[in-house]
Simulated scan of single mutants.
Amino acid sequence: MDEFYYAAAYWGCRPESAQQCARRAELFFRLLSECHPDYARWYEKARSTQKALQLQFEPTFDTFVRFFGMKKYQEGRDGFHFGAWTGHLNNQGGMVTFNCGALAEAAPNGVFFYFPSEPPGWDRLVNLPVLTGVMRAMVLAWEPDWAVAATDDFREQLSQTRYPGTFVGWLTYYSRQWGEVPALPEPTRVEPIEDKGTLVVLSPERLSAANPEHVSLGHRIQGVLEERGLLREVLESRA
């Protein structure tokens, strides 16, 4: 069993209509399809695999407007939630969930992407080009405050609280509003995502919490970012 990788992006209070969220969702899924062929086909989630495989949908603006008009995809008085998967059995593809359009006074809006945890899907999809593409899709579509691609184990080793914004992952994104990211020592790379913000790539190697050198590198880079005030909870960034 290999390590479990995920990517997640968070943003605070941002009330948006069904139409606004649908435009973002359409862009998100279009950009995902450019990351890897496995992300070109999507199904709604359901109680059983057999039922879910009957729920393939085209991730268009009109489709999401229709979804967000349904009670099951509405989040209380404001906001929407949705989940989808690629139809690959035995955790060999991808799954995504998101919450958007909410006031989020108690918790942030967010999008969460889950990668395979075992071969052959793990070998095919858990690599730097695919993860970078997924992070870019999250940033360009949802315009989050902060985003990360990491493993649960790596997160636990680097953050005592494990709250979003308080640790670095294999990839970590900071919006322009969050603060300016300094130049960082090799092998860490810093690169812009258009005019939205900055992506920090901790290492060109696949990161592992079982590798002491990777954990040490994470602590060193995290220390530099903490000195610049870049380590804080997501909701605090809007305070």
Rank of each mutant, 00 (worst) to 15 (best):
E105A: 11
N99R: 15
G69I: 04
Q74D: 01
A102K: 14
N99Q: 10
G87T: 04
A102Q: 10
A84V: 05
A84L: 04
R66F: 01
H81E: 07
K71S: 10
G101Q: 11
H81V: 09
T97S: 12
A104D: 12
Q92F: 05
G93E: 05
H88K: 15
A104L: 09
F80H: 09
N99V: 14
M70L: 14
C100T: 13
R66N: 11
G83N: 05
V65T: 11
F82T: 00
V96F: 01
N90F: 14
H88S: 11
A104Y: 06
G79D: 09
N99G: 03
R77G: 09
Q74P: 01
G87I: 08
W85I: 00
T97Q: 10
A104R: 14
R66I: 00
R66C: 02
K71A: 13
G93H: 07
W85Y: 12
F64H: 03
G79C: 10
V96G: 01
D62S: 14
A102T: 14
G76A: 07
M70C: 07
R77Y: 07
F64K: 00
T97E: 13
F82D: 02
F98L: 15
K71N: 07
A104N: 14
F80Q: 05
M95V: 08
N91K: 06
K72L: 07
T63A: 12
T97K: 07
G76W: 03
L89F: 06
F80S: 02
G101L: 11
G79N: 09
T97N: 13
G93L: 03
F68V: 05
C100P: 00
F80A: 04
D78E: 14
K71L: 08
N99C: 06
F98E: 04
N99H: 13
G79A: 08
T63R: 11
M70G: 04
